[in-house]
């Protein structure tokens, strides 16, 4: 019997698409989060239990690989599974497909911890949850599994030459019932920062448009160090980690300004593409002219 879980079915709405003409990354995350709720249910963490016990799974790390664009009107469906248990850490995945072509669109590989959702304390897995996770655990050799994330990832420590790319506070409507920010909105911060990041390299919107260029995220890897909760003042700092061939690498630190701590550290791989041909192109020359001493890789 298959250990895969049907976890999502929906579609891309027109208002979920950005200036690149495809679904924005934050809405991939929104759909991934909905899928994660169905995966929790399969593990015995149904919504009523989560609400009553105030305990559930929280991401410890999350990698998101974007495999193909989806556009307004695309129907999507998702599957999820458990790869393994490592002590109290659950390793799992979610995959979203464009239904019409059965084409893989996004892959989420995560580690998650059983957590007290009020105190944010990680807890040992309860017996029934462990049993279900073990029963569902499978290598899933027939299911795509990304190769390990390539290269350096952002450390959870401040680095020189990172700049402010977003500053905000967490609104009520961005949170779940435990007052944690929904992951969609975290990715929204990263997405909104993209234009500022391009600007830091010297690429204005006018320049990008005049060259008929779009930019796209290919691979995100995030580590979650502390919760981000309702009304928290947050600051996103970003920096160029490196650039080679067609791929740029940016790093983000999302700070909780109340505590001064880095709550999330994220590494983003991306590329530019021709807006007409929808094919990747070499990095703009501005990347070659970026001051070498400001590239974060020097500090890593």
């Amino acid at each position: 019997m298959s250990k895969l879980i049907s976890c999502y079915r929906g579609a891309v709405d027109a208002w979920e698409c950005d200036q690149m003409g495809h679904m924005n990354v934050q809405f991939y995350m929104a759909k991934g989060s909905e899928a994660f709720a169905h995966l929790q249910n399969a593990l015995g963490l149904d919504p009523a239990r989560i609400r009553k016990e105030k305990r559930g799974l929280r991401f410890k790390s999350l990698r998101t690989q974007y495999k193909s664009e989806v556009h307004a009107g695309s129907a999507l469906h998702g599957i999820a599974g458990i790869r393994k248990l490592d002590g109290d850490v659950i390793h799992g995945f979610i995959q979203l497909f464009e239904t019409a072509f059965d084409r893989l669109s996004a892959v989420y590989e995560f580690t998650a911890l059983y957590t007290n959702l009020q105190t944010d304390e990680a807890l040992p897995l309860p017996g029934d949850l462990r049993d279900r996770a073990l029963a569902l655990a499978d290598d899933h050799p027939d299911i795509y599994q990304p190769a390990p994330f390539v290269g350096t990832v952002m450390p959870a420590r401040p680095l020189k030459h990172m700049f402010e790319s977003s500053r905000s506070s967490v609104d009520v409507w961005e949170c779940d019932i435990f007052n944690h920010i929904e992951h969609r909105h975290i990715v929204g911060y990263f997405s909104d920062a993209a234009t500022h990041i391009m600007g830091s390299v010297g690429l204005t919107r006018h320049t990008v448009r005049s060259r008929n260029l779009g930019s796209a995220a290919l691979d995100y890897y995030s580590e979650f160090h502390a919760p981000i909760k309702m009304s928290t003042p947050v600051l996103l700092k970003s920096g160029l980690m490196g650039a080679k061939g067609k791929i740029f690498r940016f790093g983000h630190h999302l700070f909780d300004l109340d505590s001064g701590e880095i709550a999330i550290s994220t590494t983003v791989l991306g590329c530019y593409f021709d807006m007409t041909a929808r094919k990747s192109v070499p990095l703009p020359e501005e990347y070659a002219n970026f001051p070498a001493e400001k590239v974060l890789a020097k500090q890593l």
Binding site: G78, C175, I177
Partner: peptide
């Protein structure tokens, strides 16, 4: 046939 699968958000 299954035509939708998802979750209710607090903001809804």
């Amino acid at each position: 046939v299954e035509s939708y699968r998802g979750q209710v958000l607090a903001s809804e």
